[in-house]
């Protein structure tokens, strides 16, 4: 140990740390200005912020905006919508990719499984603006393909984006559809790391395909499923702004208005900057707590660290 430090001091001049600091300066500046300054700017949640007066001279009002949030008419509905959509997205967003990976893993034809994987990953890379445009088209009650098919089987056209009983699940299903292919990659990678001898041993013990799944494949990927599950906890209040903002309309506010769209409308459409920032602060704090819980669980039981 002593020898190492001595070596380090000898080489000290060349190993100095100044270049490391220099390399970090540009990135650090960007992060301080555009990530940390806005965090400081959250003081506006405790003010009646006026742009002309800035953060330093706006009037302090304590917790007024937070109190207002809890008394805001219809706020329970918005919180409910947010949690409802987010929770089902989290659950199905975990289960569907795992199931898909399990079944895809059983396809032995490499060409076929490669094709399926390539195609199912594609929607992940398309934005909700483009997919929103596509869904408005194909879900249209008058001439959309989906309703054409429903009518072909004698059903009534469904108003997927305009009916409050259908809108939340339209959001959940299209979101799961967008992400399941890409989400399955990590499980497929975990499956390819399973020792083939385990399968051979299972076969010797007389285990069929189904038994092999339950006794070899599933236990092999379970740690990864656990880690992905707890890491997604931070998204408990993220119902998907990009998606809903591109697909909702006043007719489905009752079932589709979520915290993020509410924050946007307050801040941008109604210019209630402080109130909007206060709601955003509460949402971020809950998200932060959930992420930390998730990381703690992933570290303790899943042996996973981010860095």
């Amino acid at each position: 140990m002593k020898k190492l430090t001595a070596d380090g001091q000898k080489r000290g001049k060349r190993m100095q740390q100044l270049p490391f600091h220099l390399m970090l300066i540009p990135g650090l500046l960007v992060v301080l200005i555009y990530n940390y300054a806005p965090m400081f700017g959250l003081v506006m949640a405790f003010q009646d912020f006026r742009p002309a007066r800035g953060f330093f001279r706006s009037e302090w009002v304590g917790l007024k905006h937070f109190e207002r949030f809890f008394q805001y008419p219809g706020i329970e509905k918005i919180v409910f919508n947010t949690v409802y959509i987010a929770v089902f997205k989290l659950i199905l967003g975990l289960v569907v990719p795992v199931l898909f990976a399990l079944f895809l893993h059983m396809i032995k034809n490499k060409l076929l499984s490669g094709f399926i994987q390539t195609v199912t990953c594609l929607p992940y890379f398309l934005s909700w603006v483009i997919l929103g445009g596509i869904f408005v088209n194909i879900l249209s009650p008058s001439n959309g393909v989906v309703n054409q098919i429903i009518q072909l089987f004698g059903g009534e056209p469904l108003y997927f984006l305009g009916d409050n009983s259908l809108f939340p699940w339209t959001m959940i299903i299209t979101d799961v559809w967008k992400n399941f292919g890409y989400g399955s990659i990590i499980y497929l990678a975990a499956m390819s790391n399973i020792d083939p001898e385990l399968y051979d041993a299972a076969k010797v013990d007389g285990a069929g395909k189904i038994k092999q799944i339950f006794h070899v494949t599933l236990p092999g990927i379970l740690p990864m499923v656990f880690v992905m599950g707890v890491l997604s906890l931070g998204g408990i209040l993220n119902a998907g702004f990009d998606q809903i903002f591109n697909l909702y309309n006043p007719q489905v506010y009752e079932s589709g208005d979520i915290l993020d769209t509410f924050i946007y409308r307050l801040g941008i459409d109604n210019a209630q900057y402080s109130f909007s920032a206060a709601v955003g602060l509460m949402k971020s704090l809950i998200g932060l707590v959930m992420i930390l819980i998730g990381y703690k669980l992933a570290d303790k039981y899943g042996d996973y660290r981010v860095f």
Partner: peptide, 15 residues
């Protein structure tokens, strides 16, 4: 910065 952020309005003001 990946765990917590200022949110839309404070970021808008800094921008």
């Amino acid at each position: 910065t990946t765990l917590f952020g200022g949110g839309m309005i404070p970021t808008y003001i800094i921008v």
